[in-house]
Every structure is written in C-alpha cells, then in structure tokens.
Nucleic acid binder design. Sequence first.
DNA 1: CTAGCTGCAAAAAATTTGCAGTCAT
DNA 2: ATGACTGCAAATTTTTTGCAGCTAG
Lengths: 159, 159
Amino acid sequence: MNQIVTNKDPEKILRNYLEKGNLRKTKERFSILKEIYNLKTHFSVESLHEHLLREHYKISLATVYNTIEHLLACKLIRRHHFEQNLSIYEPAIGQRQHDHLICSDCGYVLEFCDPRIQQIQDTMGELLNFRITGHSLHLYGHCNKLKENGICPHFEKKK
Amino acid sequence: MNQIVTNKDPEKILRNYLEKGNLRKTKERFSILKEIYNLKTHFSVESLHEHLLREHYKISLATVYNTIEHLLACKLIRRHHFEQNLSIYEPAIGQRQHDHLICSDCGYVLEFCDPRIQQIQDTMGELLNFRITGHSLHLYGHCNKLKENGICPHFEKKK
DNA sequence: CTAGCTGCAAAAAATTTGCAGTCAT
DNA sequence: ATGACTGCAAATTTTTTGCAGCTAG
C-alpha cells in the first residue's frame, strides 16, 4: 500500500480500475454503475437488467454479467448468497459494515450492525490461529406481522 | 411440542417424520440417508448422486432432490450456500450447531461454536420484529502458519 | 387397489460462452 | 486500425416439473 486511496466517488474508482487494467471505458459500464448507485438497494443480475430496460438503456444481459465481474473486482459492489441459488449484490461504497436479516417468506433484506460479531471474529481468530479478514452473517426468519395477519408486509417487494 | 423426541438415530427420525406426514418409507429414502451419514462430509446433490452410483444404487437425480427436501424438513441435514450458486449440504444429527471458518487460501473449512451468535439472533429478532429461525455465519481468513512458513497446513485437504 | 413415489426426459432458471459486428483508443 | 467489448443466441449448469409406470400400505 504505497498509495492512499481517499477518493470515494464510485465513477472515479471504476475509471481508475479500468485504466490500470487497460480495459475500455465503455458507456455501458458507467451506465450500469450509475444505476446501481441510484437504486441503492440489493439487486440480482436479472432485477438490475430489468431496471436498465425500464430506464431505456439498451444493454444486454451478457454485458451486465460482464460488468458485474469488474465492479466486484474493484470492490464497488459486494456479492451475497442468501437462501436460494441466486447471487444478490449491493453497492459497497458509502456503507457501514453491516450484516443481513432475510425474510424467508418474501426475500426482503434488512441490514443491521452488532458489535458482538467483531468480538466473535477476534475470539475465533485467536483460538483457531487464523488471521480473519472478514465475515458474512445472515439471520433468517419471518416477519412477526405475517404471523399476526397472514400478510407479509414486504410482500410487494418480492420479485 | 407435546412429544419429547429423545431419539438421535437418523433412521428412526426419518421413519417418524414419514409416518407423521403419511409419506412412504421407500428404500430409496433410507438408502440416501444411510449414505449421507456414511459420508459424514459436506456434499452437493451432484456429488451425492455420483457417490450413490459408485455404490451401485439405482437412484435417479430427481429422487435425490426429492429426498433432500424431506431430510431438510425433518432437520436431518442442513443446507449451505457458500461462494458459488450451488447448494452444499451436511448431516445435522450428532453435531452441535456450529458455524464455519473458511481459509481463503486453501478452502479448508473449520467448524466452531460461539454462544454470542445466539445472543445476536435474540437481540435482532426483538429489535427488528422478526421471528428468527436460523442463521449462517462464515468467517474468512488465512492460517497464521501460512504467514510463518509460506505453506498452508490444510492445503492437502483442499478439494 | 390406489395414492404417492420413482425414473426419465423435458423444462426452467441462472450463468457462461462463441462469434460477428461495433467502438474506444 | 485493431483488439477489446457488446449483443444475440446457443450452450452449460443446477434445479424443477410432467407423466407413465411402479410400489408401499
């Protein structure tokens, strides 16, 4: 680390990454990044692609997949694997470290922070002689409101 | 819960589950369970099916998928989603509830338990008004021994 | 007997790949 | 100009489904 990266502007990070890798700065790549950061939510490749079409971009699914790989490589997004075999992504700049609570009924994702997870990391790293670099914690459950009235309050957000 | 289940024999648990649900006790279902508990390792549907064929069982993939659902329902196995979009399963009886520490260098998986994770579940369930049913916690890191001598001690266990 | 189960093959769902034409540099 | 990128369609991979025949109860 002989260069301190202070810039938190996603577009500049992408530009920098593409230049370093001798990759092309295509309009598709920047459009996809822009829309991801507009959305600010968790998304799948398919939901992102549908969003792009609604916004009248002419970008193919294959290009979305291609671009996602680059955005992962330069850490502009993170990939998650929740209960289904479907990759879910989220923008990764300007967010606190957090974990996820996933509703098993509607797939709705809530974010939370708990300092005890850091303590677990420290304890286990020492105990098992590992240098821990990160974690993923998913809690799964059901909205209590679902039990009360039979309607999942997040259901309309279901795909 | 008006019946206390004390029996930890997987076959009896399956038998009990099938009887309660008016489901058939087919030889395929018991063969699959037996082989899973013989293997004692993490497995995918495909790797399990291949194992069954090697052991000269004549069981189709569709039946493996069907049976896996039942074994999940009666908690004889657990499903995980690690980095790829591929379901990985493990036998769940005779094992303490545990989480996973994954070595990013060699893919080796260590299991661990920490009571604080249960506390986090309880806190967040109450705070966010969810009935939490389960969690998955993955810690990622590097063996310290790797740093010391450049050789990952678990490397030979890599798949 | 007769529902539920199995095996097979076809369908679906998610992702990857091949390739001809396009575009950033 | 030229090599990387895009869009499209076909291929792969993992999982689900439909259905005819089989079997546990």
